[in-house]
Design a protein around this nucleic acid. Structure first.
Lengths: 125, 125
DNA sequence: GGCATGTATTGACGGTTATCAATCTATTTG
DNA sequence: CAAATAGATTGATAACCGTCAATACATGCC
């Protein structure tokens, strides 16, 4: 692709500083890392989930689903749905006692998530 | 609904520590704040947008759409779509020169976003 | 057993979002 | 002017997500 002698080849005459589309831009953030970061953000990126985490992070155990349902503007199946997502993400867990399910925060997992997000955010800086 | 004398009313006999559904849980994170945080995360929560921000944050200007299209695994309209979202969020901007549009990061807006996110993450801690 | 109750799951519906082919709009060049 | 090209927009499609009524499941109590 190089014609060093007669330099009339595809000099598309860019207004300033040639090089557009010439050398490939190095993507430092791989598609996989970007996907992982995106997943990390997605789990937090819903108001109900965020409020659930907020409530659980302030309560030392003893929060059952009916408590959450009373505190949140959605119905019980929706609460259960978000609780499931948060549990599958490892951010919360629950313990069944009798009829009730007591949910609580998994502080280590939450801290790890915070670290990953903070790291990626800094990498943007 | 109250029969104060004979106290057999709805003592649902919770396994331990009464109070489930009795007093309302205080929601410290308001629905509006949760929504704002969610919006803040959403704009970052896409691999392509994240890679765009990564590329732009490392290049001091001079990144045109064809550069991005070459570096990313999506077609030109999709690149333009995400560029538009990022621009509407104030995180990037562009300058047209001739046929080309040069995109660049808005570092202040990005820093502000990072601060808001970091703040909310800490509040969870 | 049968009834009541807390929670999980299912299934359906509506809304949002991501993607790309096709098209349109500048703009430059011949 | 016409042809070429970078980028934006449109419109269609598909996938995804949030919500809730209905239902299922489990447990405790009679």
């Amino acid at each position: 692709m190089e014609t060093p002698t007669t330099a009339t080849v595809e000099l598309r005459e860019r207004p300033r500083s040639a090089g557009c589309c010439a050398e490939a831009l190095p993507v430092r953030l791989s598609a996989e890392a970007a996907q992982q970061f995106s997943d990390d953000l997605q789990i937090l990126a819903h108001p109900i989930r965020m409020q659930i985490l907020d409530i659980l992070s302030r309560s030392a155990g003893q929060v059952c689903v009916c408590d959450l349902e009373a505190a949140l503007p959605v119905k019980q199946p929706t609460v259960s749905h978000h609780l499931r997502l948060l549990r599958e993400a490892g951010l919360i867990d629950c313990e069944r006692r009798g009829l009730w399910a007591y949910y609580f925060i998994q502080r280590e997992a939450l801290a790890a998530l915070r670290l990953r997000i903070a790291g990626q955010l800094e990498a943007l800086g």
